[in-house]
């Protein structure tokens, strides 16, 4: 008789084994307070030594917006007829930053917490979840700044703003999913964290943050597939839907260009479900190996 047989016969189970999916989800749900507390603790400790403290949560997005406005609005004159270019740009930057930062921190979420993984039991997916929640908390701060800017630029407060809630929720699901994927990749191939900034910057420029896709599509009239492809890009989808929710002038401007956006909602849903479910399963399948590094 082998030791393994002896152990199983006496009802012992393997200690480094991955729990069944259903049980794993239940464990993750049980840790939801940990995920939330971990996220807010991280965000508090981020600014604890700065003199202005938590004020940086608002100042950082504000300064970001100022830099982009200076470069793309003033120096490069990218507005090209887009009404209210500042709110257009700032909405794009803030909303895309949510995805961008989720990917960046998600990729490091396992590697940076190896000592935690090697000390305590918890579903490892808690970590990418926590980092995306942290980014969501930052986004909320950014949104307050954004609302102030948008209202200050004379945009009306309309019922359309409520559409922001489902868009952000779908984007949240998408971000969690993509962050789970890069978390697994980053856990076993650290090089990915060096490569990601370049990929993310490319993604940024392809997502219509500083220009309007509705505006430039005329330039690609002989390549309609390219416009279709750019439209399918999740980075663009969430940003564009947020703009349509917030900016009345931009909404009218795009309508005048005869550029429907109804299908973007389907894309948003598609990407959110695909990434969330796919990313979760992908991360889960390596659950027992994350401690090895």
């Amino acid at each position: 008789m082998s030791l393994a047989e002896f152990a199983t016969r006496r009802g012992l189970s393997q200690s480094a084994a991955r729990p069944p999916l259903r049980q794993y989800i239940a464990q993750l749900w049980q840790r939801r307070h940990f995920v939330w507390t971990f996220a807010s603790s991280k965000s508090i400790s981020l600014y604890t030594t700065a003199r202005l403290g938590q004020l940086w949560q608002v100042l950082t997005p504000l300064l970001n917006a100022a830099v982009y406005y200076l470069i793309f609005g003033v120096l490069l004159q990218m507005s090209r007829g887009i009404p209210d270019y500042i709110p257009f740009l700032v909405t794009g930057v803030f909303v895309f930053t949510f995805t961008q930062r989720s990917v960046n921190t998600g990729a490091k979420s396992v590697g940076d917490n190896l000592s935690l993984i090697r000390a305590l039991h918890f579903p490892r997916a808690s970590l990418p979840f926590a980092y995306v929640i942290l980014e969501l908390q930052q986004l909320m701060m950014s949104l307050i700044v954004l609302f102030a800017i948008v209202l200050a630029m004379g945009e009306p407060l309309t019922a359309h703003w409520l559409l922001l809630v489902p868009v952000i929720l779908l984007q949240l699901a998408f971000n969690i999913g993509i962050s789970l994927v890069v978390a697994r990749l980053g856990a076993f191939a650290r090089d990915i964290t060096q490569l990601l900034p370049f990929m993310l910057r490319t993604w940024f420029y392809a997502s219509g943050i500083i220009y309007s896709l509705a505006h430039v599509q005329n330039r690609f009239q002989d390549q309609p597939w390219l416009v279709k492809l750019l439209e399918f890009n999740p980075g663009y989808v969430y940003v564009e839907l947020c703009r349509h929710a917030l900016l009345a002038k931009y909404r009218n401007y795009v309508e005048d260009l005869h550029h429907p956006i109804g299908h973007l909602w389907w894309y948003a849903l598609f990407w959110a479900v695909l990434m969330f479910v796919g990313g979760f399963l992908y991360f889960y399948r390596a659950e027992e190996r994350y401690g090895r590094g």
Binding site: A4, A7, S15, A16, A17, A119, H121, E288, G291, R292
Partner: peptide, 11 residues
């Protein structure tokens, strides 16, 4: 069970 075994197992 925090460090996965390369070979063998812990029950």
């Amino acid at each position: 069970g925090l460090l996965p075994p390369e070979r063998g197992a812990v029950y």
